[in-house]
Nucleic acid binder design. Structure first.
Lengths: 219, 219
DNA sequence: GTCTATAAGATGATAGAC
DNA sequence: GTCTATCATCTTATAGAC
């Protein structure tokens, strides 16, 4: 399973054949089918193990995160560590492999994303609960968006390393924006509420009429 | 080339073999090697064509974008259209295939990302130039981050469609945040400047000393 | 340019010895 | 459980007829 995970990380799904993995593990190719049935099922088992280990490692650390700047610092550390470990690359490969309608890889990708978003969501929710950002931030959706974005950035890094660093830097700069709104407190909260009533509710009304629910509050 | 692009979109890199592509085009497999040399080179040519067509289509539309809400509306439209066309999925497949050290696919992925970020960057720069956000937003890095994030979200969508919609919704909600800071104008600008001096310059100082450049303005 | 035929190799998977 | 040996199948890629 270690050999499978390493091969997936370094060679991608395309290079993760039974023979390549078995050679890396120093065993015979037939063993893979004896123990796991198919190559995809081995990759699934290996990635589940890797994701579980990584998420377990961060659970304690996540629990200590109390503020937004804590979150950003932990996030930076997590990204760098997981990047070096190659787990993000592994998830990216699982997801692109899953697009070729491989049920085992799809299941592995779903599991990995779910494991991460569950943890991230609880942290985001805790940190944002008494911030004006709670008005606009949906922690569940946000956790998924953050996870997915990191997958994309990892793939981008494989293709244009300097560009990816550039992109990450600019996202960090943008985090200052969140900090500012947070610090602005009641002023920001009032401005956000006003915005939400004028723009967003119009879109929501469209949505509601589209699904023929007519119990919206009087405009 | 159309058949190659379609196969890449629908079956992924793993399923994009010479025989599959040729069958889709209704021609013989050997023609691919006659015209393009290798399968990867065909995929490269096909993706360049698709990217060029897509970017050309949006160039005029991008030119009309004048405000931040314009940008968000165009962005939403672009995302939906390109998603349906499958171009984001194609880029995702190119990038994950490139991770397996395929030079032609890597080149194709680089070209696609570059083509999009060049266009997006100019729009972002134009829209943000007289906004307080210009203080923290690096348009080049931001354009790359946005492009990469959409790649990740596309892959995620293939694995968990409802979750991906959720993630996109929450990003749209978060866009209201940007709107608010924009509207707050001078107040936000002052708060941002203050933040940048206190937190970010410390990090920049670390970086500068790390690369042994000592010409930073007196603290 | 397009085809048939074919080489030369990789792949997933199984059968059976040990 | 682990191996060897083998299968059918798929792969890229080339040679040569038309």
């Amino acid at each position: 399973m270690t050999a499978a995970a390493d091969t997936l990380r370094e060679e991608g799904v395309a290079g993760a054949s039974a023979r390549v993995i078995a050679a890396r593990a120093g065993v015979n190719q037939a063993l893979i089918f004896y123990h796991f049935g198919t190559v995809s099922q081995l990759l699934e088992a290996a990635s589940r193990q890797a994701v579980d280990a990584a998420v377990d490692y961060y659970r304690d650390r996540f629990a200590e995160v109390a503020s937004l700047s804590d979150l950003l610092r932990t996030g930076r550390e997590l990204h760098q560590r997981e990047r070096d470990a190659g787990n993000v690359a592994m998830m990216a490969q699982l997801m692109s492999g899953a697009a070729g309608r491989d049920p085992a890889l799809a299941s592995a990708a779903r599991y990995a994303m779910s494991a991460w978003t569950v943890e991230i969501e609880s942290v985001v929710q805790r940190v944002l609960c008494d911030s004006p950002l709670a008005e606009v931030a949906d922690s569940a959706g946000l956790a998924r968006a953050v996870s997915a974005s990191f997958i994309g950035l990892e793939l981008y890094e494989g293709v244009d390393p300097e560009g990816a660093v550039h992109a990450l830097d600019s996202l960090e700069q943008l985090a200052v924006l969140v900090d500012v709104v947070n610090d602005l407190g009641p002023i920001a909260r009032r401005a956000l509420r006003a915005k939400l009533n004028s723009s967003s509710s119009a879109r929501r009304a469209e949505l509601r009429s589209a699904i023929s629910v007519s119990d919206m509050p009087g405009a």
